[in-house]
Design a protein around this nucleic acid. Structure first.
Lengths: 214, 214, 214, 214
DNA sequence: AATGAATGAGCCTTCATTCAT
DNA sequence: GATGAATGAAGGCTCATTCAT
């Protein structure tokens, strides 16, 4: 005899498997390129399961996106009692690991990175729940580093410069593979990239700060 | 009375209209998302016209991509008898105008930016003919700025940082529109962005150069 | 109230209707000439049904072909405890009924006869599962009639002569209709044809046997 | 300056090349399987040439068919002052060479053999101009061998048996290639086949004659 | 007269979705 | 509640044919 919890879980298990499979497939192909059938096949579920559980392919994407890890990263970073430069370094290392490390189970950021360019019904949610907070977080962090003389527009561009560098490695992955076939994104390489972006960006930020003051 | 040139082009006009429409549609949707029918509709041509003129949708993409303008930019830049820093500034301004200015008829870079993440049969061509030369060009330019102490890997990452910042504005356009609805990419704004990327990157490059020397 | 068998078949009915319609259409037109739409129309099924149930048009042909009846004929013939000549007569009568009798639901042989000349992906299967066994069967039967003096090549040609005569009536049906518009293939006529082929062939075989011995 | 004859020939040459190419392609693929483009490609003519010269694909087939060689064969055979049995042997040898010898430029019979089963607008012409005369010719030839006791129906079946054996080798060529991959239709093999059909058929005919007399 | 360009109907197939159980 | 079966719109592409020169 099954307990109610077990029954719930049994019913929830398919749901979970679908979400996992969806994250996998959406991060490999684009939203358009992914097919409901492939997702259901990997989740060992019926073709109709997606529509049954999530209403539509769009609904599945919306639910598959869960930015808890990204939010946790920011939260943890804010708590860290370090100077802002060190916190930027730490954040960039973790963020790049999240974006590039295949072993990292959090593929939401990889999906997010894919969908940026191709407006999906889910894009509004992505922007609202993940990207806007991320930009805000980075904006505050940079603001801690620079003086008030740096204008909002310039500050925003600094954030864009940082985010742009990070996303580039994820977004242009197929290109980089062709340009440098030997390159492997192991943990060491990813950390080196994070470190590079931090150094590069901190120098850029400081320079712009200095220019603004004068 | 038609001139000889006009007669020649008369038979080429459909071809041109198809290429123009293709560039439009490919840069709006992804390669997968674009449909031959939509392209033909805009080109006021028959559905079969694409296959007649270009063999296939793939063939159309391959022909629609023409990196002449990007190559010209690099060529002109190399000829400029300026110091490398100024040349980087100039290049970034022109490159951003190419990527962002809607009035700029060269949408190839916009298409290119789209296809980076989603390997298409045409990606190899894009990498070979446009991206590899671009990276090589920027690598040489950065090398002129830094000392030999900076290793190849670090130099490559500097190029990635520059390209990443540039592509971000094109690639994340739908996102940025949602984040900052008021922002308009007029010529002045685009030039400011180019200037920002130049300042930001030059500072980053110089910093990494200094670190390498020590 | 449905029996269990009916329930089982209920979900298979569309499949069966598709197979029946396919056999009909494939035997009327060639594989190339037949269209999935026409098959689905006759089966009162959706255009996508063929791909859903059989993967492709090729897959449908492969499944539509089922040589059970032809194999059964050979099996039953082998068991018959008669002299080989009588068994040849019996086989030819049944084979011609299979090929020509419109009332005979086994249209596989009619499809088979169509595809012989126009290699289809399914031809290999047809040859392997139907034609090769048929030729082997007839080869053995003829061998029982003739002495060992008759060489393999000659024996094979005897089989070809028999099969050629049989297929002619099926294959050249449209021609024969035009040549002899009054002729109807009722059961009596078909049996007369089978009897003719048997007499004609037995005489040919015996003659070649005699020639080989001398 | 071109002479009128040369002009005519120049104009006729494309026509001829189209007919040659059509015969080639029609005998390789079926009428449906053959494409106008492929024919024009081989004839080094424009895609529109077929419709220009022959009105349609159907018209091309109708004109491509020319049974002169087959008719000549029959005519020559009738003139031969031999006994009917020898004339049957001769005819079968030449007919098989016409059907099977790739070096034989007369591909009409090969086309004819293809189209028998798939009613084409051209089939009526084929039957009228080639098949009916052929059957009549063979009917007369067989009649010379047998007594008046043999009925018309039986005589007709004898003709069918002969034609069926001959066409089998052409029609089932793809099958025979799979059954006996080593077999090659060189001149020697073709003549052996013709000889076999003659011996086999003569024995069949004589037997049926004897049966009818009794 | 003769052709490169263009046409549109139709092909097989794939897709997200809905239906009947 | 959950699923195998079925749907129909749309996809890229091929074809014989026609058009404009």
């Amino acid at each position: 005899m099954m307990t109610e919890v077990e029954i719930k879980t049994a019913s929830e298990q398919t749901r979970m498997r679908l979400l996992d499979a969806a994250r996998e497939v959406f991060s490999e192909h684009s939203f358009q390129g992914a097919t409901v059938r492939e997702i259901c096949r990997r989740a060992e579920a019926n073709v109709a399961a997606v529509n049954y559980h999530f209403g539509s392919k769009d609904g599945l994407l919306a639910e598959a996106l869960n930015f808890a890890q990204l939010a946790a990263l920011q939260k943890a970073n804010v708590k860290a009692d370090e100077c802002p430069k060190i916190r930027l370094r730490l954040f960039l290392r973790d963020f790049m690991l999240m974006l590039l490390d295949e072993k990292n189970p959090s593929s939401q950021c990889r999906i997010m990175a894919r969908e940026l360019a191709d407006p999906t019904p889910a894009l509004d949610k992505i922007v609202r729940e993940a990207i806007a907070p991320l930009h805000e977080f980075l904006g505050k962090l940079v603001r801690e580093i620079v003086s008030d003389k740096v204008g909002e527009a310039e500050l925003r561009r600094c954030v864009h410069s940082i985010v742009g560098q990070c996303l580039f490695y994820r977004h242009s992955h197929p290109v980089l593979q062709r340009l440098h076939p030997k390159l492997r994104y192991d943990r060491k390489e990813i950390e080196a990239i994070g470190e590079h972006i931090a150094e590069f960006s901190l120098a850029g930020i400081k320079h712009l700060d200095k220019v603004s003051r004068s």
